[in-house]
Design a binder for these strands. Structure first.
Lengths: 348, 348
DNA sequence: CGATCTGACTAGAGCGCTCTAGTACAGAAG
DNA sequence: CTTCTGTACTAGAGCGCTCTAGTCAGATCG
């Protein structure tokens, strides 16, 4: 005859459990579990009744217990750097792709005070079934140790380790697209601001060099270092302004393009009037109406979807053809590229 | 005499448990638990021995089981929008502040496909002990329901609900600082780009109006709407460029200042030569060497630290003087503000 | 009319921990 | 020799679920 005034429930009393719902409904715990999991084994009538009582008691299944009791956790762990817009976009896509497949996502942030190792440790402690590493630099050794325990998918950069999956865009192709676009517009002196030690930077640099070579522009090709942040692009812009402008610049990513464009704007250098600029990523920032940055799109949504697909395929032992999934990038032409002003001298 | 070749462990065999370590060490599970938790009750000798065996077996405590078995979870839940730099900074600070106090952080992202409600639901299901809501818009009703279950701290904006804690900066004071700085420099026509319906926008707008009034500048005060993104600032810049420039602009946040500055740069409007600009937040972007944005600092690190302190205080039943912790903002003067070029006409 | 089947439901054993209430056994005090 | 104190350790009961192996009606069938 306990009068459980749930409405005035204080924080003190613990949240209701399966047991409570079962008792109230006059059924077994197992049945309530069946209803809550929406698996077959209960009649429609009881299903509705149990659901109503659960609602009434404000019952919410205990994630910890579920994780512990189930034979599977269906948990996808993601490590990411919170301050990186590309990472954030990927994580968003992973959430969206995982939930329809019945997988949950758990994030573990890499920050100044929290190393990739710690972030991974946390994920492991929750026994997630697969690890998704978004553009973070984890040592080959650690990668190997991790891959021995669970499927690992590295996103957005190549990874040398034979045991990990990789989902990324073809960086060399992306650079080729950028170079070809600029060449077709009539540019020759096309510079590249690289990403230094940042993920995928090496591939993009190589792609740039190859593309320049193919167009017979090796002698005018120039790589200026480098980094992934706005200020890195800004620094390069200052160098270029002093040393003489090229016809066009392809940056390592959109972030560094932003810094570059800003310094150009302040120096009164017209884009695309005096110099064309191509970014990389097609992140949110490239679409800003006042920037309208021409950029190479990695199709982040697709990247995320394929990442989840791959992790799930590994978990469910589906056959996987290649360790690496490489997406074809495409160019998004916006407002920062145009024919050179002086270009009436057609042909080479 | 089973030969447990752990080195060649396949993914198939489950990770080792307390039991395994205990068996190997010839002690009870409870003792191993004591050692792993680093609580008193074991001799140094056994402690070392158990630790060595745990290491050898590559044992890692199971977070799910810990959470479930302990009388407390010591889990702090944080909901945040991944694409918001301010949120990311706060989350980073929360990690840093929580771990020394023995609390763990669990993130739950708000995305286009994941509502604040869903994000909260996830946190609840892991039975975190307190919820931290970073600048997200949760209905008053939902806030109330949540606060009945656990301590709730809202960060970076006022919240009307009497049951939730608030940690934020004094937005009106921040605007006062900005206005005073500009007035002292000799500006009169100081405009404000507001944040529209964004969190804290109302307070900043009010603070601006009050400060302008105090300086007898009501007739030249002007609020132009508004939004929290770069493009919102850019839109305002275009309006100002057409309708006539004020002496200075104070933006709702750094993001919108970035858009504003960019459009000014493109239109050949000199900052701070023709117009001074003050941002708000002192986020990473304000410190970019090519921007050097004068801005009102909320001291995000401190905001995060106080948020954690407050949540922990509630959990540990420490006395709490006021529901709201309001930090005094301060002005960070960088390169986007200066005396007006024509300012030799001293006095009013 | 007993044998078989099917759908709805239940009992109870875990999952890997934590934590309370103990036991065992030193050494010190009476 | 007993009693006491403290340290080192253990037994075992949970935490709130899931899941296997049932039970038990009632329908189906030869």
């Amino acid at each position: 005859m306990g009068k459980e005034a749930n409405g005035s429930a204080e924080r003190v009393c613990r949240p209701p459990t399966l047991e409570d719902v079962a008792a109230r409904a006059g059924v077994s715990r197992a049945l309530v579990s069946i209803v809550m999991r929406e698996v077959p084994g209960a009649s429609d009538t009881t299903r509705r009744r149990v659901l109503a009582i659960a609602e009434e008691l404000n019952y919410r299944p205990d994630g910890r217990a579920r994780l512990l009791a189930g034979r599977r956790t269906r948990l996808l762990g993601v490590t990411l750097a919170l301050n990186n817009p590309f990472h954030a976009d990927v994580a968003e896509g992973i959430y969206a792709a995982a939930e329809p497949l019945g997988y949950q996502v758990v994030l573990s942030a890499i920050t100044r005070t929290r190393t990739p190792g710690q972030a991974l440790e946390t994920l492991l402690s929750y026994r997630c079934e697969a690890a998704v590493l978004v553009g973070s630099l984890v040592s080959r050794k650690r990668l190997g140790a991790l891959a021995e325990r669970m499927p690992v998918v590295v996103v957005g950069q190549p990874s040398p380790h034979p045991a990990v999956d990789v989902v990324r865009a073809a960086d060399a192709d992306g650079m080729r697209l950028a170079v070809e676009h600029l060449v077709q517009l009539g540019h020759r002196r096309i510079a590249h601001t690289d990403g230094g030690r940042a993920p995928a930077s090496a591939d993009r640099r190589k792609g740039y060099r190859a593309a320049m070579k193919r167009h017979g522009l090796t002698d005018v090709s120039s790589v200026i270092g480098g980094g992934e942040r706005e200020e890195d692009g800004a620094a390069v812009a200052r160098i270029l302004t002093e040393d003489g402008l090229p016809d066009a610049v392809i940056t390592y990513n959109d972030r560094s393009a932003v810094g570059l464009l800003d310094v150009f704007a302040r120096s009164g250098i017209a884009v695309p009037g005096q110099v064309s600029v191509v970014g990389y990523d097609d992140s949110q920032v490239a679409r800003l109406p006042y920037l309208r940055l021409t950029t190479v799109s990695q199709d982040i949504t697709m990247l995320a979807r394929l990442t989840v697909q791959r992790a799930v395929a590994r978990l469910e032992n589906e056959p996987v053809a290649h360790r690496e999934v490489v997406l074809a990038p495409h160019l998004v032409v916006r407002g920062t590229t145009a024919r050179p002003a002086t270009a009436r001298e057609s042909g080479s």
